[in-house]
Design a protein around this nucleic acid. Structure first.
Lengths: 199, 199
DNA sequence: AGGCATATATTTACAGTGTAAACATAAGGT
DNA sequence: ACCTTATGTTTACACTGTAAATATATGCCT
């Protein structure tokens, strides 16, 4: 009958995989990662306790799918609302602000995206999105003017610098490690050192 | 009889708390956080399954104690082998290198130290060590020469910058996010922009 | 010394969880 | 129609955290 989305013929859900991801995401941000279980997701969707196994194999599979989704959204956030003729410095500012905004809006998911153990690190779909994410950062990391221009390893150095700075800021901010009174009017752009560009 | 350390009168262990911490640490680094359970720690020490409850209350208590221990070691690492008359730039280099070295040597513990959910964030002993850790970073963060010197918020800006850069680098490095071929001869100092100091 | 409060460790019990295996039901292609 | 596959269910089991009751040692007080 209805060939898309929330088909429900009683026995078959019709869109269970995405429904499970959605409820998993909700549980994760609302109740923290310790409350996220396959069985709770199943119950929230109204399906048997072991139904998620058919779609994700095991819990790592679900978490991997969540992380993959997270990276895709992060990339979209970094690219959002950018005029096509923006300068590299403008693209960098937009990407950095979008990156941090995503982390602050989805702290539990963001933590999962960088967790060492919970996710299948060599999942192809995940690797693809991770690559896309870091490609955006790499593109915007050039020509910082912070390192000696004769350096043969200049590009790599600039990339590592930008990734480290923005990830560290994002995670420390979401973890609440910075004192609030010192953070007034401070954001990722205000701690980004000016190179020798005009900006 | 023996009033210290590994006393063993059959029933009472004598040093169970530290023994549990030790085995927890071992399990964490050798088998990952998913393998770390109170029951496994108890079994490793040769004690009943619920004995850890007497010393840590619950699992969060054990993880909090682990994280506290981690921060203490991190501080020691940052301060290690520094001549008392070292300049601020020298202290900064030593602290940054010690910080990253600790993270690379204890990746699972380091992740736990910045986890959002697993640890009792307001534990006094933990807060004390966190404070000590950040005090070292704050001390070494001054006079970077990277931001306008007239800035009324200069100190806070410098601190946030240094914490973000070193934490981001440490976590991305432990997570293996940097491509290996680009990392040859690159470390935290080589991505630290030179200010206007002599260094 | 005896005696009692406390700390430390055990046993038992129970609800959640992940996961494997066998089974049931729907969907699709030949 | 029939078989194959995909999708859900049921059942079963081992492992985990945690509460509660119990047992054993330690320390202090008189």
């Amino acid at each position: 009958m209805d060939d898309h989305a929330t088909a429900r013929s009683g026995y078959h859900h019709g869109n269970l995989k995405e429904a499970l991801l959605e409820s998993a995401r909700k549980i994760l941000e609302e109740s923290g990662h310790s409350a996220l279980s396959l069985r709770q997701c199943a119950k929230a969707v109204g399906v048997s306790a072991t139904a998620p196994q058919n779609h994700f194999g095991n819990k790592s599979g679900l978490l991997t799918a969540l992380a993959t989704q997270g990276y895709a959204e992060l990339v979209a956030r970094m690219r959002s609302s950018l005029p096509p003729d923006a300068s590299r410095a403008e693209r960098r500012s937009a990407a950095l602000q979008g990156y941090v905004a995503f982390a602050l809006e989805n702290p539990a998911l963001y933590e999962l995206m960088f967790a060492r153990d919970r996710v299948l690190a060599d999942d192809p779909a995940l690797l693809e999105q991770v690559g896309a994410c870091f490609a955006v950062l790499a593109d915007t990391s050039q020509e910082l003017g912070l390192f000696p221009s004769g350096d043969p390893n200049l590009e790599a150095r600039e990339q590592v610098f930008v990734w480290s700075l923005v990830h560290g800021y994002a995670q420390l901010a979401t973890a609440g490690r910075f004192k609030k009174e010192a953070m007034k009017g401070m954001d990722i752009l205000s701690i980004f050192p000016e190179g020798n560009q005009t900006g």
